[in-house]
């Protein structure tokens, strides 16, 4: 990745979303700077998934804006996110079945390929060179994540953990500046938590702004620089992992009133 100097990353300001009469997100403001991991935690129903969907354009917010590196992203237009270098993974695996792992990753570079679609009918030397570059880059990424031996396997033949990794590698092929990871640990066995943590930390080291939406507290507390706690659609508090763990309001939101120790949140 290129230098991270003064890249502001992702900025969300005053986002509101209601379904029917129910306010799922009210006035959410948060920031995920480049080169750092910002985590969003919160109990079920806090609005985490909706937030991820607003950022990535799958849900249109009622108010508020999503800004990446100073550019305001059009609300509810998921297809525009790639050109603004915002990538995301999905809570439920979203992979391109029927294609090989290499092709899946190459799809990540889709929006960076500038040739016209009609030009693909001719597939002139430039288009061919583009294709080769994309495949080379995809292979390099697969090597980095030790998946190169899987390059030609159909993606649906991979074990779940590897398939999730392919999904993340596909996002990297976009050369994103911001990624939103929606529950990356969901469905993974505990043994996979450590390699996953290393992978995510690696993204931030590359200068990417990471917004990590996660249930797994151990993962969140171990790698995040900044934690935002969402409760009933509002930012309850935010701070460093240590600060958040000590905050009585967080304990109450998670464990119910009456819980006094922070024992159960420190793992």
């Amino acid at each position: 990745m290129t230098s991270t100097i003064e890249r502001p990353g992702l900025q969300i300001t005053g986002v509101c979303k209601a379904y029917g009469g129910l306010q799922v997100l009210s006035d959410v403001t948060l920031r995920a700077p480049a080169g750092a991991i910002t985590a969003v935690i919160g109990p079920n129903g806090a609005g985490k998934s909706t937030l991820a969907n607003v950022i990535s354009g799958f849900v249109t917010q009622d108010r508020g804006e999503v800004v990446v590196n100073g550019v305001r992203l059009p609300p509810g237009k998921a297809v525009t996110r790639a050109e603004h270098r915002l990538g995301r993974t999905f809570q439920n695996l979203e992979i391109f079945t029927g294609m090989t792992v290499l092709q899946n990753v190459a799809m990540g570079a889709y929006s960076r390929q500038r040739g016209s679609h009609l030009g693909d009918l001719v597939r002139g030397p430039r288009a061919r060179r583009d294709e080769i570059e994309v495949k080379e880059a995809a292979l390099a990424l697969l090597r980095r994540f030790r998946l190169e031996h899987r390059a030609d396997s159909l993606v649906e033949s991979l074990p779940f953990g590897e398939a999730k990794l392919v999904e993340m590698v596909r996002v990297l092929a976009m050369e994103p500046e911001v990624v939103v990871l929606d529950e990356p640990a969901a469905g993974l066995p505990p043994a996979s938590a450590l390699p996953l943590a290393e992978t995510i930390a690696g993204l931030a080291e590359d200068g990417i702004g990471v917004l990590l939406i996660e249930h797994n507290m151990k993962l969140v507390m171990s790698i995040s620089q900044h934690v935002v706690v969402l409760d009933q659609g509002q930012v309850l508090t935010e701070g460093s992992p240590a600060e958040v763990q000590q905050d009585p309001r967080v304990i109450e939101a998670y464990l119910g009133p009456g819980a006094t120790t922070s024992e159960e949140l420190t793992l």
Binding site: S56, G57, F58, A78, V79, T80, R81, A82, E83, G87, R88, F90, E94, I95, F96, T97, G98, M99, Q103, A106, M107, G108, Y110, S111, E167, R170, V171, M174
Partner: peptide, 17 residues
């Protein structure tokens, strides 16, 4: 590839643009 991708996973195809 993209035409096929859309049939396999609509959200992911949108997400890659």
């Amino acid at each position: 590839r993209a035409l096929r991708a859309y049939g396999a996973s609509e959200p992911a195809a949108l997400a890659v643009g």
